[in-house]
Design a binder for these strands. Structure first.
Lengths: 255, 255
DNA sequence: CAGTGTAGTTGATGGAAATCAAGAAGTCCT
DNA sequence: AGGACTTCTTGATTTCCATCAACTACACTG
């Protein structure tokens, strides 16, 4: 199957309203690649030649400094990443690593930049995508700086609930140690955070979590539309807005 | 003087390579406005009708949650802000407040969006600007999550030095309490951080700081091009990349 | 000039989270 | 089934930072 034939690619917000011509030119030289788990796709500081589109699996974006490491976000399909670096033809500020086996479409950065210059519709779509990514990061920073660990975690669970349609059961999409990294805490403290939330009706059983006293949990978490993105199907905390696009997929972008 | 006649506006990266026609259409209905100090220009959650261009004074972008407040960045001329919200025609995620008396150019959001759709060159320039803003936030998050208070502060001083051309004296551009907020700490702890840095040759005298033992300070700070933006004249930590634009001004953007 | 207010510093204390250490439960392998 | 490995949890300790409180220096004001 050629990349241009993959419907989820065509359905990406960055191709919304874009002509078939431009779409083919952009994706014409793209190729689909499979990666095993724990593969580094891109190291921070590397030049970026491709826009990555995650079609299957999970990818972690991380930054390091002085042998410390932090997880910026975890992507799930369908998401694009390192768009900003592609647009500027700059070096990556974050590393990208597969968590699972992944299926990834790689689109030539040159093709992106060239077609932006020639097609205003496409350029606008990219600008909107970037705006969403930017706002996702603003949310992340507010979440980080304004909330304590337990509050962040409570909001994470509520966001997860909202995205899965709103029952009282929620399924954790990552291992707990990965989740801890995502929330910016140690696995130990995530464990303790779960324990604390027990007092608010949260019952954990492996990856299955029941939110027993929603009201109590919400009073603790105080979810805020200007921090938490309850928009339809956006994958995670650090994700792009889905405010504008009501199309059918998840979104992201980075570096 | 009409907005279109202000050279610093025309020199903004978002107008680089843009035709005079588009430039006039975008800025034609813009107007210049003066604000006193401590004026809230925009409250988080508000719809955003204008792109703001800061020509004089300082503006703080902040976020709040549950009567806590955090400073996301402090802007200095010439900077644009809330570009992302304008592009998406969305509500602001941060509040904007003047710190000084300010002179601000307000450009119609509609005009921006419409001209993006009609002029690919302009749309590309906006996309590049957004990419720079995005990368600025990535840097901010890495700085936040990977470094402790003293390390952040040391790097702040070094960045300041680099931007002022590199002598051993540095002038703090903000009051210390504002600086503390910017670095995400309390004024008390900034004071203590300065005291600690005394051991690394840092001598403070009001707003004047001497970096006596650069080598020592650098060994502590470990500046990193993937976090700190030493690029020419970019104003502050949280600022956009200046990697691509070598034109003559400072850059920013937000929300 | 006294009087008020704000910025900045310094010290003492408390709380949140990282770290260190150990143990429990589960998975994969042969 | 046994053994090695990993994840997750729990407890004890340390580190970092916020908070509270007191005090200094300086500017502005009547």
């Amino acid at each position: 199957m050629r990349p241009t034939d993959i419907p989820k690619v065509r359905a990406l917000p960055m191709f919304a309203n874009v002509s078939g011509d431009t779409f083919s030119r952009v994706t014409g030289s793209a190729y689909l690649q499979r990666f095993p788990a724990n593969t580094t796709l891109l190291l921070e500081g590397d030049p970026v030649d491709f826009l990555y589109v995650l079609l299957e699996g999970q990818v972690e974006l991380q930054g390091t400094w002085k042998d410390k490491e932090t997880t910026l976000t975890i992507l799930r399909p369908v998401s694009t990443f390192i768009l900003a670096a592609v647009v500027l033809d700059a070096d990556a500020l974050m590393s990208a690593r597969t968590l699972d086996r992944c299926e990834i479409l790689m689109i030539s950065g040159d093709a992106i930049r060239q077609n932006m210059a020639e097609d205003a519709v496409f350029a606008v779509a990219i600008a909107r995508e970037l705006s969403g990514c930017y706002r996702g990061l603003v949310r992340t920073i507010k979440n980080q700086k304004l909330r304590g660990g337990v509050e962040q975690h409570a909001n994470y669970l509520l966001t997860l609930r909202a995205k899965s349609g709103g029952g009282d059961k929620v399924h954790l999409p990552h291992e707990k140690r990965v989740l801890a990294a995502l929330l910016g805490m140690t696995p130990e403290n995530l464990s303790r955070a779960f324990a604390t939330l027990g007092g608010y009706g949260v019952e954990v059983n492996g990856a299955e979590v029941r939110l027993g006293k929603l009201r109590d949990l919400e009073r603790l978490a105080r979810p805020d539309p200007l921090i938490d993105n309850y928009a339809p199907r956006a994958p995670l905390l650090a994700e792009a807005d889905a405010e504008v696009w009501s199309t059918e997929h998840q979104r992201t972008g980075a570096a």
